[in-house]
């Protein structure tokens, strides 16, 4: 899936990738997709949990070109 913005959080530990996601959500328009590339395993639980708490849409997980997990979020508000 294409993301309008992709955040490189490869070398960050929890909760940094979630903080970056929150700070950069406004970089995309409502309806667009922002991606978080994060090697830290906590992101797998925490990106969906953040979406639920912040009423954004979690679209799922794929992988970046280098194989690092990439988590996709659609901005709803």
């Amino acid at each position: 899936m294409d993301a309008t913005v992709e955040l490189d959080c490869r070398d960050m530990l929890c909760p940094r990738p979630i903080i970056e996601l929150a700070r950069h959500l406004a970089d995309v328009e409502v309806g667009q997709v922002i991606a978080v590339v994060a090697g830290d395993v906590a992101a797998r639980a925490d990106v969906p949990a953040w979406c639920r708490m912040r009423s954004q849409e979690y679209l799922g997980e794929d992988t970046a070109d280098d194989g690092v997990p990439r988590y996709l979020v659609r901005r709803l508000s």
């Binding site: 929890c14 909760p15 979630i18 395993v41 797998r44 639980a45 925490d46 949990a49 639920r52």
Partner: peptide, 17 residues
Amino acid sequence: TLQPSHVLAAMGALTHG
């Protein structure tokens, strides 16, 4: 283990903080 709690993850709860 540097793994988040499998309990919190299974519940869909936030694991950090």
